[in-house]
Design a protein around this nucleic acid. Structure first.
Lengths: 130, 130
DNA sequence: TAACAAGCCGTTATATTATAACATTTTTAT
DNA sequence: ATAAAAATGTTATAATATAACGGCTTGTTA
């Protein structure tokens, strides 16, 4: 069991905001939120985000340029991510389905190539919005 | 069989450039290329891109903010896209695998929710780069 | 055929997202 | 204690994308 990573001050501040949020957050909205904690520049936020992504503590929703906390307990899974995204309310949920992840992790294309990483984004209407 | 869509002048110009390209193109690189054809402003490019995306003639590679021509003959498939992306040379290939698309199109999450659209990006090293 | 709607075009300005470059400080490992 | 690695702070700027405005063309349709 790997030692829980200790986050630096800025990383911790940024992570807490993302973790508490109800939905994906954009970098400049995070910046706005953390200004009271002494983080002033975009780069400080982006650096924290980069590190948190690398650690798997957060994920980037590419279609939205926004960030969510990883909800898989002890996530090491930067390499196999799947999300459901509501096209109306923008709610994002991380999909944690072992059949799906097994299927995709084992997927080989027509040339026999196997991949080391994937990201999948599903779109539709969530329960509430339907 | 739906009538082949007729593209407007700007749409045609932008599409040809993307189609001829060897890899994904970014919007401002397209802008640079089309300036000799009289397209001067980013918005002109983005409008053409939006329309081409809507028509399924091109796809956006979200992780790169770049655009590729659809290689599935008669693509209507804006709604179910999968790509392989080489992390070294940045080569992008559209994956056309009916097993995969059937699997994903039928996928339901733990709440029983079915999705109307997905986009999947695989990452790894292509043949050449391995 | 007038007139209306829909789509496309061109332009300027500006919003949003992200990184470069540089100097310094803190933490970690030896 | 010291060297290497990681994190910080700051200013400036690059890269990506949209808002707002007005006009032109084309194809209904009344």
């Amino acid at each position: 069991m790997p030692q829980a990573q200790i986050l630096s001050k800025n990383q911790q501040v940024v992570f807490e905001i993302i973790e508490k949020a109800k939905g994906p957050l954009k970098a400049y909205s995070i910046l706005y939120d953390v200004q009271k904690k002494g983080i002033r520049a975009p780069l400080q936020v982006y650096r924290a985000l980069d590190k948190l992504l690398e650690l798997g503590k957060i994920h980037k929703i590419e279609s939205k340029n926004a960030f969510v906390a990883c909800k898989n307990s002890n996530c090491e899974i930067t390499k196999a991510t799947a999300f459901s995204i509501c096209e109306k309310c923008e709610k994002v949920t991380e999909i944690n389905n072992s059949k799906l992840s097994n299927y995709l992790s084992a997927f080989k294309d027509s040339t026999g190539m196997k991949y080391s990483k994937y990201n999948l984004e599903f779109f539709g209407l969530c329960k509430k919005c339907k």
